[in-house]
Design a protein around this nucleic acid. Sequence first.
DNA 1: TTGAAAGCGCTAACAT
DNA 2: ATGTTAGCGCTTTCAA
Lengths: 338, 338
Amino acid sequence: MDKQDRPRRPTISDVAAAAGVSPKTVSRVINNEPGVRAELADQVLAAVSKLGFRRNTMASSLRSGGQTATIGLIIEDLANPFYSTIAATVANIARTHDTHLITVSSEENPELEQRQFLQLCQRRVDGMIIVPAGSDHSYTRPEVEMGMRMVFLDRPPSGILADSVVIDNAAGARAGIVDLLKDGHRRIGVVIDSPVIYTARERLAGVRSALAEAGIPYDDALVRVGVTNPDEAAHAVATMLDGVDPPTAFFTGNNRSTIGAIQELYRRDSDAALLGFDDFELATLMPRPLTVIAYDVQELGRAATLRLFERIGGDTSWPSETVIPTHLVQRGVQLLKS
Amino acid sequence: MDKQDRPRRPTISDVAAAAGVSPKTVSRVINNEPGVRAELADQVLAAVSKLGFRRNTMASSLRSGGQTATIGLIIEDLANPFYSTIAATVANIARTHDTHLITVSSEENPELEQRQFLQLCQRRVDGMIIVPAGSDHSYTRPEVEMGMRMVFLDRPPSGILADSVVIDNAAGARAGIVDLLKDGHRRIGVVIDSPVIYTARERLAGVRSALAEAGIPYDDALVRVGVTNPDEAAHAVATMLDGVDPPTAFFTGNNRSTIGAIQELYRRDSDAALLGFDDFELATLMPRPLTVIAYDVQELGRAATLRLFERIGGDTSWPSETVIPTHLVQRGVQLLKS
DNA sequence: TTGAAAGCGCTAACAT
DNA sequence: ATGTTAGCGCTTTCAA
C-alpha cells in the first residue's frame, strides 16, 4: 500500500464495472460501433471520464491484428535542415492518417541503419521511409516478404526492389555546369562528398558529362572528393585557389560544402563564380553571388509519404521510381538591392 | 490461399514448434534469461533465424506491464532549426536508453497540443518532453496522477507542477539592451512575438527592465508585438525607420525576426545596430554586423531529456527548474576578414 | 532446467 | 442490443 505506487490505469473492465455493463459494450462505445442504446452509451462515457480511461493503443492493435498507426523514418541526421524539413513533411502527412512518426538517425552508418531498421520492425511500424546509408539493402528482404512496406528517399535501394523518390541529381549538376561554361568558365573546381554516397556520385557524373560534352578534359587537380563539412570545403577551395592555374568557378556538391566555399571566397574577396547543389533558407542573405541547384524538398518528402500510405492502404503495384526535377536559382544578398 | 496474403509473421510459438521446445524456453533464450541449456538455446536461435522471427515489442511490453521504450516530444514546428536541433538531441540521448522518439508538432495551437498529448498517453509512452503552446496545462493532471512523466522545455508549465528547463530570457535580453545603451543608443526599436508566448513576454520584460534602469521612458511607438515571421519583422523595422525620430538600434525577439530585420536593414544600407535573441548557424555569414543573445540549444534539450529519464528511472523528487544561461556574441560576415 | 497455465488490455467471433 | 468466450503475442507464475 505504498502511496508511491503509480496507480494502475483503469482498463476497459474497470470502466465496464463502473458503468454496470460488459467490457464489450465499453469497447463498442469507445470505438463508436453502432448498436448501443444511447442511455447505456452515456453511462459508459460517464464512467470513462470519471475514471480517466484512455484506451491502450498497443493492446488494441495487438488484438485487432491490424496496423499500429506508426511509421518510421530513417535519416542521416535530424539536425540537418534538409532532413528536418523532410521529417516535418512526413509527420504532417502522417497526422492526416492519424499515424505517429518515429524518427531515427543512422549517421551515414550502415550498421546503425540496419539495427534501427530491425528495431522498427520489432515495433511493427506500418511502414518506413528510408534514406539509405549503406549500399546493400538485401537485409530488408525477409521483412518485406513478411509485409513490411518501405519507400526509399533521396537515394535508391540496392539489392531489393522497392519504391523510391529521388531528385534528378545528374541533370541538375549538368545544367549548372553548362551554365558556368556558357559564362566562359573553363576551369571549374569541384568539391564533393564521398562517392560512397549515391547523390555525390550522380552529381559528379553530371559534372563530368557536361565537361565532356564541351570537350573540356577532366582535371583531377580540380576535384576534391570526400568533403563532408563546411571547414573541409573551405580548405578544399583554398588549396585549389592557391594552386597553379586556379579555377575561375567552383561547384559544391551540397549545402554544407557551399557554405564552406562562401566563407573562403568571401574572405579572399574572390570573384570566382559559385554553383552549389541544394538551396537553403538563408541563401538569399549570403554576402556574395551564387547559383544554387534547387528542388522542392517538401515535395520529395511528400511524394515518398504518399507512396508509403498507398502501400499501407494495400497497393501492390510494381515499385515506382519518382524523380523530382531541379532548377537553377540565383542567390546572394546583392539581389535584395536590385 | 490467395498469394497476395501478407504472410503472418512467425510468433514465439512457431519458433517453439520449429525448435521442439516450449514457448517459454524461446522467451528465455531471446531475452537472455539464464537457465537454458546451451544446446537447446542453439536450437532456438537456429529456428529464430530460419523463420526470421522478431519479437513483437508491443506484445512484450503489454504483458510485462513495464515501459514501452518510447518517449514523446511535443514541439511547435519540426521544420524550425531550433526545434530540430532539440529533436535530434533528444533522439540521440533516447537511443542510449534503447528508447524510440515520437515527435509531434503542435503549431502553437493549444488544442492540437492537447490532442497530441492525449494520443501519446494512449500509446503509453514512458514520458514526454513538451514545449507548451497553451497557458493552461491542468489537463495533464489526471495523466500525471496515473504515472505519466513529463518535462517542460523552453517554457514553464502552468496549472501543474512539473520539471522544466528554460533559458534565462529576461537576463539575456536585459544584458543585450544594456550593451546597446552603453554604445549610446537611446531609441531602440523592439520587434517581438505575441505576448501569449512565454519567451516573448520574458524577453520584453528584460528589455523594459534595462530601459527603466537607465531612466529611458518606454515608448510604445518603438515596440511591435505579435510578429511571427521574417516578412512581418522586415515590415515592422521598415515602419519604425520611416517614422519620426527613428530608432538607432533594434532588438528582435527571435531568430525569425532577426532575419527579417537583417533583410530590411541591409536593403536600406541602414547602419542601425541590431541585437537579436537566438543564435543561428549562418549568423556568421550575415551581410551586416549584429549581436546575438546566444545559448546552448543542445544543452537545453539534453538537460530536459536527462531529467525525463531520471523520472522514468523512478526519481520522485520535487520538480526542478533548470535555467540555461545566455551570452552575447558578435556576428556578421565582416568578422571573417578581421 | 523446462514447461503448463494464466493473463496483460483489448476486440473478433460468436452467442443470447 | 448486449454479453460470453476466446485469443492477439508475449511473459509471469508456478509446478514438475
